[in-house]
Each structure stands twice: as structure tokens, then as C-alpha cells.
Design a protein around this nucleic acid. Structure first.
Lengths: 323, 323
DNA sequence: TTGTAGGCGTTATCAG
DNA sequence: CTGATAACGCCTACAA
């Protein structure tokens, strides 16, 4: 008298449609041709039973794929506060979505050991985020690392930190700057490369040690530095957010930018709340995201994948001027 | 001569350890007691084979769960640009992570029909994001809707828009304001409730029709309004980001805030780049995220779940003053 | 074009 | 505490 107590399966549908299990399967997947008539019969049977399509869990087991790519970005709250993270994430999501894959956020603390991931992306994250690495390697999960450390067996996507940094430094040098300071990020290979690029031009650049791309931290460090630090004519930051913090703090102390102090950023993101266009190194965030996603897809498909280093471009804005 | 060509399975481990398949399974899952001795034997066999633990795909099929919760937030780039989104997302992720579940981002355009989701959260998203709704309902996937429209069969989490908005309006009225304007968001139930709350106090409030919580849009609309619009003493915005835009634009036009114009926001997020504390309606973002995640977990567990409406609180800052 | 049969790797039930 | 056995729901050679 009552319908099936549990959700209908493909077998139920096949039975109602009067076809075999495999035919019903093909009617849904389209992996092999099925006559239009039987296809309609199967679909009709399905909707009459309230069958919503093949159970993804079973399908996944059979095909050995979950359709999900994990992405680790460090602490969620701090990672996405950085405006440079979003266009990247957006592009990753778009490419993966178009390929029918989902994107799973891997927060720092929780281990997701039981989740079947087809690949994992590490974007810009430090040591503390690598706790799942061994497990993923043991499971042969393809790994794509964006702006991260060099680990064996992983595919790399990165930008040309050193060249970008050097181009910016050259721009400042051309404008007569000789004494500059650089505000850092957490120690990492990208950070070291950027510093190396800078020191090609300014070997003696002072270091203002910041740990993150954070406005408040940048303001606070700039405040200390401008009050007590050596006398420089320019401060080179490692993100536009940092640069904005330095600009705001400099102004608060009565310095004009770029009149009294030149300030440069990195990333090339929008800072619409700042009435000043920053001189910055523009990185191709969307390209980076797309390259990352494509690398992940290729690794999943078992294709060989080459590492990627994307070019960056200096964009001169109104935050730098003559020394 | 060579090891197994494909990754080892639990059966291989059991064979090497000299125990049955079920015992090996228990040694990993801990679902029933296993003597310490055999457990060690199984683990030893596992590591000798390079077995990295039960295949999550198979485990998922068997248990009927994927361990993944989807979250739809509309367009990724715009959703996370709103600083109010992050603390919420962070809390969701934390609670789900602690429960061993992953969080999958559902972008607007791509359909993820083949992904096995244990539940789906709709956070603050408009019509265009609901395309997966029918499919999810057909699959009996538990749905949790945050600040969204009322659909049958879903669990709701929301804040008390109307009361918050009314409290803010009362504050302005107390300070002598009589002519106010309100900057809206996209038409939605929350937006309507907020407007209703405002109109309890200011039935004739003017409307400045914005579509999103976007700084540039707010600036542009404020520019038009302040140039041509009716003469008001206060503008009530639907987000702190909007409010910041209005403040910046007012200043640009030579108006002092709150001297010439009072400006209020909503959300209670940080705007460290604004040298002014906004008067705003603080919503408990982390609580909202936790409540959302707990609702999802409860629905997955099959427990009954009540809708949630969280209280908000007026916070008076330096952006509002006497009329 | 359609049907048959086997297995993907686990976990759960049930008996010993 | 341990072992045999039966699903979980689908996909895909292979055969007809």
C-alpha cells in the first residue's frame, strides 16, 4: 500500500521502466548511447518514483573520485580578510565548478582525514597548515602549492616575486630614493625572494618586521618606526593593505604621501576607501587561480603538470614620488 | 616480486595481520572494543603495507554520509568582500570542523548536482542562488537558511532585523532627528524587516536604493543624494561598509560627520581604515555561524531543530549626534 | 542497442 | 572480544 520506505535506487527505476540496471545507468550517465524511447521510459519511471538521480556516494566509490578538491588557506578569518585572496579563490572556484568539481575549505585546526579529496591546494599558507601533508601523500592525493614552500611531489604555482620586487625598487631608485625600509610578511620563500629582489637595488634596506597583511599591524609598526626608526624616504610594503596602513599612519603623523614619504604596496588590489592610488606590484590573481585549478584538474586526470611562475607588473600610482 | 599494483585495502591488512576483515575494521574505527594486542598487530600490518586508513569513499557509501556540508553564499567575490561574512563563516567552519565535517563552497553558477552533501547552508543569498533547491529537496538534503526567504522544509537562522533597526531609529529620534534617509540592500525579507523597523519611528524616511553592501556603490549613491536629494539630518545604512562610504562621501563634499550629517551602519564589523567609530547595530556574527552549524549538524543527525532568531544590539559610536 | 555479472572497500549485523 | 556474511548503490567490461 505504501511506497518504498527508503529512497528509490537505480534498480527500482530499472524495474519500473522494464529495463536492465545497466541500461538505466546509461540513461542517466549517457556514457554509451541509449535509444531515445528507452531513455524517456527510464526518466519517466524515475520521476514517478521520485528518484533524483544516481546516488553520488555510490557513484563516487565506483569511480574512485569524490569530485571534491580541498583548499587550505591558513586561518579562514585572516586569509579572506586579505583582498588579494578573493579573486584567486573566485577563479579557482570558477574553473573547478565548470569541471563539475566542488571546492572544500580546509581550516587550519580541524583535520579532515576522513574526507575523500581528489586533490588539495595549499594557498599561501605557513607551516602550521601542513599537518595533513603526510596523510595526503600517503593517500597519493595530488597536491598543488601556491606561493608555498617547496615539497617533493607537489605542483607549484607562483608569481615572480623577485622580479616584481626588483622592478619596484628600481622605480624608487630612479626617483632618487636611497634610504628605504621594507615591511615584511611572515618568513617564507616568497618573502625571502621579494627581499632578495629589493636588495638587488637597496642592499641596506631596513626591515620592519610584520607578520601578516594586516592593516592595524601595519599602522602600529609604522607608528613605531616613523617615531624612532632611521630616516628613510620610502617604505616598501608586501601588500597593498600594509601600504594603506602605512599611508594612513604617516598622514596621522603629519607626513604627506608621497611628498614626505613614498609608500609602495604589492598585489594590485582595490582599496576604494583610500583616496590615493598605490604604487604597487600587480599580480595576476585570476590567472593564478585559474592556473592553480587547471593544475589540480590535470593532476587528478593523471596528466603531467609543469610548475607555473606567473609574471607580475609594476603599476605606478600616486603613493610614490621623488625622494 | 613487486608489491600490489593498487593501493592496499583493509582486506590486505587483515590478511597480513592474520585477523578477520571485521576485526581490522574495528581496529581503525574503534566502534567496538578490540584487544590492544590485535589492534597493534593490525596497525603494524597497515604501516608495513603503506595502508593509510580506510578508504573514505567506501566508508561514505557504507555509512550513507559524505561528511561534507555545502554553503552557498552567492557570488564568492562579492560575498566575502563583506567583512560581516567572515566571522560567520569562521564560526561555521569551526563547529563543523570539530564535528569532523568539511565545508564546501557552492558558487552561484556551477551546479554541483553530483556532489554528495549531507546538508546545505544558504547564507544571505538571493534568488539567483536557489537553482539547486529543487534537487536538494528531492534528495532530502537538510537545508539551513540564514537571513533568507522562507521556504518549506528548511531550518531558519536569522537576527532580529526589525528590532535592531527600530532601536537605531529611536536613538536618532531621541537626538532630534526628524528627516532621515535609509540606504537599502537588495529587496529581501531581511531588508523589508529592517525598513519596517525604521518606519515605526520614521514613517516617511526617504529611500536610497542600493543593491549591495558595497563601498563604491554607497559612495556614488551618497554623492547623488547629497547633491540633489531632500535635506535630511541622518542617513541610516544597511551595513557598516555602506555607512563608511557615506561618511567618506559626505566629508568629500565638506560635510562634517556627525556635525552636519549623522550616519549609521549595521553589522558591527571592524572598519580600521575609518578614523571614526560607526554607530551601528551589532549582530552576533559568530553566534550566528555557530547556531547555523549546529542546526545543520542536528538536521543531519535527524534531530528536530527549531528556527533561531538572534538578538542584536545598538552600539552608539561617533558617527551620529544631535540633529 | 540491451542484458548479465562482478566488484569498488567498507561497515553493520549477528552469531560464536 | 572475534569472525563470517551481507549489504551500501552504482558502473562497466563482456556477452548477446
Amino acid at each position: 500500500m505504501s511506497g518504498p520506505p527508503r529512497p528509490p535506487t537505480l534498480a527500482d527505476v530499472a524495474a519500473v521502466a522494464g529495463v536492465s540496471l545497466s541500461t538505466a545507468s546509461l540513461a542517466f550517465s549517457g556514457n554509451k548511447p541509449v535509444s531515445e524511447a528507452t531513455r524517456q521510459r527510464v526518466l519517466a519511471a524515475a520521476s514517478s518514483l521520485g528518484y533524483a538521480g544516481p546516488n553520488p556516494l555510490a557513484s563516487n566509490l565506483r569511480r574512485g573520485r569524490s569530485g571534491v578538491v580541498g583548499i587550505a588557506v591558513g586561518q579562514l578569518s585572516s586569509a579572506f580578510r586579505d583582498p588579494a585572496a578573493l579573486p584567486m579563490l573566485d577563479a579557482v572556484s570558477e574553473v573547478l565548478g565548470a569541471a563539475g568539481m566542488g571546492l572544500l575549505l580546509m581550516a587550519d585546526d580541524d583535520a579532515h582525514p576522513r574526507l575523500p579529496l581528489d586533490a588539495v591546494i595549499y594557498d599561501n599558507c605557513g607551516r602550521e597548515t601542513w599537518h595533513a601533508y603526510d596523510d595526503l601523500v600517503a593517500r597519493d592525493v595530488p597536491l598543488v602549492v601556491v606561493e608555498g614552500p617547496c615539497w617533493p611531489g607537489t605542483t607549484f604555482v607562483d608569481i615572480d616575486h623577485r622580479r616584481g620586487s626588483a622592478a619596484l625598487a628600481a622605480h624608487l631608485h630612479d626617483h632618487g630614493h636611497r634610504r628605504v625600509a621594507t615591511m615584511t610578511l611572515e618568513a617564507s620563500r616568497p618573502q625571502r625572494e621579494r627581499e632578495a629582489g629589493l636588495r638587488q637595488v637597496f642592499p641596506d634596506a631596513h626591515v620592519i618586521g610584520a607578520c601578516a597583511s594586516d592593516l592595524a599591524e601595519a599602522q602600529s609598526l609604522a607608528s613605531d618606526y616613523l617615531a624612532t626608526g632611521p630616516d628613510v624616504t620610502a617604505i616598501v610594503c608586501q601588500s597593498d593593505v600594509q601600504a594603506a596602513g602605512v599611508v594612513l599612519e604617516a598622514r596621522r603623523r603629519g607626513l604627506s604621501v608621497p611628498g614626505d614619504l613614498s609608500v609602495a604596496g604589492f598585489d594590485g588590489v582595490d582599496t576604494p576607501w583610500l583616496d590615493l592610488s598605490l604604487t604597487t606590484v600587480v599580480q595576476p590573481l585570476a590567472d593564478k587561480g585559474r592556473a592553480t585549478a587547471h593544475a589540480a584538474l590535470a593532476r587528478i586526470a593523471g596528466e603531467p603538470v609543469a610548475d607555473v611562475v606567473l609574471p607580475v607588473e609594476l603599476r605606478v600610482g600616486g603613493s610614490t614620488g621623488p625622494a
